[in-house]
């Protein structure tokens, strides 16, 4: 098993190289003639107003919160799913209770209009 992860590590290096090599090739081939206008931020020709890195809408954060809850749920469901065939009824009831709790959570978020995109 450990060797499999070793292969993944090697493949990671190769995959990163796959992204870097064309950049290196183009470094030799491309031309570079920068000027201030060309290097300005492109916002459809209008000059940019104010900073870009500002506080962002809270709506995104709500989605992120609900996502984290469900993502943790799925992490718990995966080992359960692998063992389900052997565990039978007990596993079924246990998972039923677990998912029910989360479904109530989803219903609550739905009811509180956290899932409405404004």
């Amino acid at each position: 098993m450990l060797t499999a992860y070793g292969y993944i590590a090697i493949f990671l290096v190769i995959a990163i190289g796959f992204g870097i090599v064309p950049l290196i090739i183009s470094l030799r081939e491309r031309q570079t003639r920068p000027d201030p206008v060309k290097l300005s931020t492109y916002e459809c020709g209008v000059e940019t107003i104010g900073p870009t890195w500002v506080q962002f809408r809270v709506g995104f954060y709500l989605y992120a919160l609900v996502f984290v809850i469900f993502d943790v749920e799925t992490v718990f469901l995966y080992p359960w799913a692998v063992a389900y065939g052997k565990l039978g009824l007990y596993a079924l009831v246990e998972m039923f209770v677990f998912v029910l709790l989360l479904a109530v959570g989803l219903a609550y978020a739905w009811r509180k209009r956290a899932l409405v995109w404004k």
């Binding site: 993944i8 190769i14 992204g19 870097i20 031309q31 570079t32 920068p34 931020t41």
Partner: peptide, 30 residues
């Protein structure tokens, strides 16, 4: 695309700007 000018606007965060496309390609390949 290989011979095109590669413009890096003056206001970008250079390090992250350079890394982002490589992260996208590497994760797709992995």
């Amino acid at each position: 695309l290989l011979t095109k000018e590669d413009i890096m606007p003056s206001r970008v965060d250079r390090m992250v700007f350079r890394l982002a496309p490589i992260v996208v390609v590497a994760t797709a390949l992995l």
